[in-house]
Nucleic acid binder design. Structure first.
Length: 135
DNA sequence: GCCAACGTTGGC
DNA sequence: GCCAACGTTGGC
């Protein structure tokens, strides 16, 4: 079981939309590096949903269902289905929190600000658990 | 809303 | 294949 982070602009599609929809197909990721991350997602993996607008923060959890597949409408994009798990009452961990910890300067979220899907290392997950997140 | 950083496109 | 011009993302 692996952990990933998926960024989204809440004005376009936010955690509240996922709450309503229960299951959604993540689409429109075209950056080759981000597409590779999507391709490596497997059923049962956990996806931390991150809002990249407003207060930049992890706002909820989803899990990967079904299998990832090419987008029939867009050869550069790749599709993965996410199922809603939970929405945090408060943004759980903000970008500012992560930066302030000084522990994750090498995390793609910090280092490659524009990468929209990221595989998360165990060290980061452990840190989140320490902060009280049950994963 | 601004703009820096970065990704993509297209002409050569 | 290089790189200038352009477009987009995301933090502030």
């Amino acid at each position: 079981m692996n952990y990933f982070l998926a960024k989204t602009d809440p004005d376009t599609y936010g955690i509240d939309d996922l709450v309503k929809e229960k299951i959604t197909t993540w689409s429109g990721v075209r950056n080759p590096q981000a597409v590779n991350v999507l391709k490596s997602m497997k059923r049962g993996d956990t996806v931390l949903i991150y809002h990249s607008q407003g207060q930049s923060a992890i706002v909820g959890l989803a899990s990967v269902v079904g299998s990832s597949r090419p987008d029939p409408k867009d050869s550069k994009s790749w599709l993965v289905d996410f199922k809603f798990i939970k929405k945090f009452k408060e943004p759980f961990i903000t970008l500012a929190d992560i930066k302030a910890s000084k522990k994750f300067d090498n995390l793609a979220l910090i280092k490659q600000g524009r990468l929209s899907t990221i595989e998360l290392p165990a060290a980061f997950i452990n840190w989140l658990k320490q902060k009280g997140l049950s994963l």
